[in-house]
C-alpha cells in the first residue's frame, strides 16, 4: 500500500490519460493546454482537468507568457514519482521472493511427510 503522502502523486500518474498529458509535457517542454488538446484523443476540458490534478500533485507548474498560460513538468517531483514506481516494483519482488521461499519449504515438508506416511 502506498504511503498517504504519496496518494495524490500516485493517483495523478496512475491514470493513463494523465500520463499521456505528462508524456507530451516531458517531450515538448512548456506548452499550452490548447496545444496539448490538439494531440490527445480527449477534449480540451478533459485536458484542463488533468492539468489541474497534475498541478495539485506538484508534477506540473504553470506560468503566464503574454496572454498564454504555459504548462511544464516539475522535474524533481517527476523523479520522485519514478522512484515511487520503482519502489513499488521492488516491493513486489521482495514479496514474491518470500512466497517462493515459503512455498518451496512447504513443498519440501509435504514430500518428507508423504515419504514417512508411505
Amino acid at each position: 500500500m502506498t504511503a498517504p503522502a504519496d496518494d495524490e502523486l500516485w493517483s495523478a500518474i496512475a491514470d493513463p490519460s494523465r500520463r499521456r498529458v505528462l508524456d507530451l509535457l516531458v517531450s515538448n517542454g512548456a506548452v499550452s493546454a490548447s496545444w496539448l488538446a490538439g494531440r490527445v484523443p480527449f477534449s480540451r476540458q478533459a485536458v484542463s482537468k488533468h492539468l489541474v490534478v497534475l498541478e495539485r500533485a506538484g508534477l506540473v507548474r504553470r506560468r503566464k507568457q503574454g496572454r498564454e498560460v504555459l504548462y511544464q513538468v516539475e522535474a524533481d517531483r517527476l523523479d520522485q514519482a519514478t522512484r515511487a514506481m520503482a519502489e513499488l516494483a521492488a516491493r513486489w519482488d521482495r514479496r514474491l521472493a518470500t512466497v517462493k521461499r515459503l512455498a518451496e519449504t512447504a513443498h519440501a515438508e509435504d514430500k518428507k511427510r508423504n515419504r514417512h506416511d508411505g
Binding site: 491514470d15 514506481m85 516494483a89 513486489w92 521472493a97 512466497v99 512455498a103 518451496e104 512447504a106
Partner: peptide, 20 residues
C-alpha cells in the same frame, strides 16, 4: 491499465503456491 507486472519461478506445485 498495466502498472506493475512481476513474476517468479517457484519449485513447488501450483496447489502449494496457491495455499501460500
Amino acid at each position: 491499465d498495466l502498472v506493475i507486472e512481476r513474476e517468479v519461478l517457484i519449485e513447488a506445485p501450483a496447489e502449494v503456491v496457491w495455499r501460500t
